[in-house]
């Protein structure tokens, strides 16, 4: 009966306004923001300021946003990234200062630790089908706690200024801060994986219709596990960078970072219902967050007020992204 009622809904294809907005909405917001910022302050388009924004994005939400995008594409969420960043920062300090390991070994061990955190969350989410929100919330607490235990709540200095580590975080290559170059690399690799590999194809499909993918004989849990591991590793990378830039391993970094990261991905047009989102738009989303903070700094908005404005601007961005789609329905 019902099947006869539901005549096949022929949806109009082509380039309707909604489709355009979905694809280029983030870019439009970005351009408008750049124009506003330029008019607002002459300092905005200056080279040091642009580099400053980029570096803040790179050490903040930028790199983690790629991992979060992959998680969100599978219809998941990872709230633990800020804590894993802190754990990464502390472990970097610990391995360099206490254990005396070289940079390479240290980085490898820290990334392993981040991956292990992701593995823990991912195992429960992928195989026991527990909600990612709750599981990553648990990891948020665990990783932050571990960071505090290891550092005993105190910053761990990485050693003399000018060592291999600190020079990376504050150094330049070809006139561009090195963390920014690393962020570009992560985004480019992320884009290649998402668009040109089996892995990217499958995780996007899982977010759209997990059951159909499962019934096509694809081992869905393995892929879900992988995105959480990836997210954990990238959060640890962010931890390494932040310790390298500040010269200390600290359990206090990345508090609330998960919210900025999720906001960047969602402003980038990714759907929290999975299956939709792209690397370029996520990058723009992260930049938008960075530019907003930058404008407010240039305009001299007091720190406490900034948070309120940031929240309000996210709401406006979301309305522009999705509001028109909801109105059409």
């Amino acid at each position: 009966m019902i099947s006869a009622v539901e005549a096949p809904a022929e949806r109009k294809g082509g380039t309707s306004f909604g489709v355009l907005l979905q694809r280029f909405g983030t870019l439009a917001i970005f351009i408008v923001l750049v124009i506003v910022a330029t008019l607002w302050s002459d300092a905005f388009l200056s080279r040091p300021n642009i580099l400053n924004v980029l570096r803040q994005v790179a050490t903040g939400a930028g790199i983690m946003a790629v991992g979060m995008l992959f998680v969100i594409l599978t219809r998941g969420i990872d709230l633990s990234v800020g804590s894993i960043q802190a754990l990464g920062s502390v472990l970097t300090g610990y391995f360099v200062a206490m254990s005396g390991y070289g940079p390479l070994v240290t980085i490898l061990l820290v990334l392993l630790a981040g991956g292990a955190c992701g593995l823990f969350t991912g195992l429960f989410v992928a195989y026991l089908r527990l909600p990612p929100f709750v599981m990553s919330l648990a990891m948020l607490a665990i990783a932050r706690g571990l960071a505090l235990i290891i550092s005993d709540g105190r910053p761990i200095p990485l050693g003399e200024p000018g060592s291999a580590f600190t020079s990376f975080g504050s150094g330049f290559l070809w006139g561009i801060p090195q963390p920014v170059l690393l962020m570009f690399l992560v985004f480019i690799l992320g884009g290649i994986v998402l668009n040109y590999t089996r892995f990217g194809r499958v995780i996007t499909a899982i977010g759209s219709n997990e059951e159909a993918v499962r019934l096509a004989g694809i081992p869905v849990p393995r892929y879900i596990l992988a995105v959480y591991v990836l997210s954990g590793v990238l959060a640890a990378v962010a931890g390494v960078i932040s310790s390298s830039r500040t010269g200390v391993g600290s359990a206090q970094v990345g508090v609330g970072a998960e919210l900025n990261v999720i906001a960047a991905v969602v402003i980038g047009g990714a759907s929290l219902m999975g299956g939709r989102g792209g690397v370029i738009n996520t990058f723009l989303g992260a930049l938008i967050m960075g530019i907003i903070a930058n404008i407010m700094n240039l305009a001299g908005v007091p720190g406490y007020h900034q948070q309120v404005y940031m929240g309000a601007i996210i709401v406006v961005a979301m309305l522009l992204q999705f509001g028109t789609g909801a109105l059409k329905r």
Partner: peptide, 15 residues
């Protein structure tokens, strides 16, 4: 269960 509605024919066919 059969198709991924919002994905292209190409993606569905080779899944």
């Amino acid at each position: 269960h059969g198709v991924i509605l919002d994905k292209p024919i190409r993606v569905n066919a080779t899944m």
